[in-house]
Amino acid sequence: MDTIYNIQTGQDFLSASLRTFRYQYQNIEIYRRFVDYLHVNPEEVDELVKIPFLPIEMFKNHQIIDKNVKADLFFQSSGTTQMNLSKHYIADEKMYKESIYRSFAQFVGKPEDYIFLGLLPSYLERQNSSLIYMVDFLMEKSAKPENGYFLYNHEDLFKLLNKLGNKKAILFGVSFALLDFLDYCDSNAKTLKFSDSLTVIETGGMKGRKEEMTKDELLKILQKGFKTGKIYSEYSMTELLSQAYSLGNNEYQCPNWMKIMIRNAEDPFNYEKEGRTGAINIIDLANIHSCAFIATQDLGKIVGDKFQVLGRIDHSDIRGCSLLVS
């Protein structure tokens, strides 16, 4: 089988998706049972819209894993100890690392060229975070002495940002923590120096810590506070091995082995046309050993060759990496 990273055309993607669907139907018990429950004949699935998408909630109650592999590593969604959390078992770390590297390099740049800073307190304070794993990997590839994480030590982060000069740096931050840092700067009359070499990548997530605001409002506040126009966003989740990136305007791009489809929120086998809001389905072909076809609880729409994330379906749980309502 050709590697998913060789996908170039729509036909390449369709062929790889159908092969993955048939493999997962045969080898992932929960997915096979789900497809059978829907009375879908795998032999009749010949286009993307006929593929059943597994509800993301299934990761909370089932171990979704290829029967032919062993998985010692797993990622776990955020939440309280009382919540039933999703677990995503990872059988092929090499595949995941290659997905991280290629996605980042395609949309942002080569990791080796950047200093990586993490302002991710809610993720550092728990175990088995896929986001921390990703940033750890990027730091490893970067190997810059300035790389590091910051919990609530805002003074240290402020000093480092003002010392970077022309060094290219990425600050990964959860939304509420980025805003907390800017509040600290304001309340202590600290002014960040203008730095065109700094890129901020927000990963979403207010977690009840800040008043809700639109994505546009958030980006404007971050641009003003960090004195850079490079405010990007990253979209992924515990149940995926790939990432989409927005380089502004809440418009995300997928790597070639990942695709967003917008389903009708009331009828999961009907899909919305470009520009119409619906629920987000994700094909992530890096998920070869779990499930590549995920029906999320996020709302969005297709805009040209990009997509927007517009919030959450009513009554669904708030996920740690979900994005703000726009």
Rank of each mutant, 00 (worst) to 15 (best):
residue 4 I to M: 08
residue 7 I to V: 13
residue 18 L to H: 11
residue 23 Y to M: 06
residue 25 Y to H: 11
residue 27 N to L: 09
residue 27 N to G: 08
residue 28 I to P: 02
residue 34 F to L: 08
residue 37 Y to L: 06
residue 50 K to M: 10
residue 55 P to K: 03
residue 58 M to D: 01
residue 59 F to T: 05
residue 64 I to M: 06
residue 72 D to Q: 12
residue 75 F to E: 01
residue 76 Q to F: 01
residue 82 Q to N: 10
residue 85 L to S: 15
residue 85 L to R: 15
residue 86 S to Y: 11
residue 90 I to C: 09
residue 91 A to D: 02
residue 97 K to Y: 12
residue 101 Y to E: 07
residue 104 F to K: 06
residue 105 A to F: 00
residue 105 A to I: 00
residue 107 F to V: 11
residue 108 V to L: 09
residue 120 L to D: 01
residue 127 Q to K: 13
residue 128 N to D: 08
residue 143 A to M: 07
residue 148 G to E: 04
residue 149 Y to H: 00
residue 150 F to W: 02
residue 151 L to M: 13
residue 154 H to Y: 15
residue 154 H to F: 15
residue 157 L to N: 05
residue 158 F to L: 10
residue 160 L to E: 00
residue 161 L to I: 07
residue 162 N to I: 03
residue 163 K to S: 15
residue 167 K to G: 00
residue 168 K to M: 04
residue 174 V to R: 02
residue 176 F to E: 13
residue 177 A to M: 12
residue 178 L to R: 03
residue 180 D to F: 14
residue 181 F to Q: 14
residue 186 D to F: 09
residue 192 L to G: 05
residue 193 K to P: 02
residue 193 K to E: 12
residue 199 T to C: 01
residue 199 T to Y: 00
residue 200 V to G: 04
residue 203 T to K: 03
residue 205 G to L: 15
residue 206 M to V: 06
residue 211 E to G: 15
residue 214 T to I: 05
residue 222 L to Q: 08
residue 225 G to L: 11
residue 227 K to C: 01
residue 228 T to C: 01
residue 228 T to S: 05
residue 229 G to K: 12
residue 232 Y to K: 04
residue 234 E to Q: 14
residue 236 S to M: 07
residue 237 M to R: 04
residue 237 M to D: 08
residue 250 N to F: 05
residue 252 Y to N: 02
residue 260 I to C: 06
residue 261 M to I: 05
residue 264 N to S: 11
residue 266 E to Y: 13
residue 267 D to S: 11
residue 267 D to W: 10
residue 267 D to N: 14
residue 268 P to A: 10
residue 289 H to R: 08
residue 290 S to A: 08
residue 291 C to N: 15
residue 294 I to W: 09
residue 302 I to N: 08
residue 307 F to L: 00
residue 310 L to R: 04
residue 317 D to Y: 07
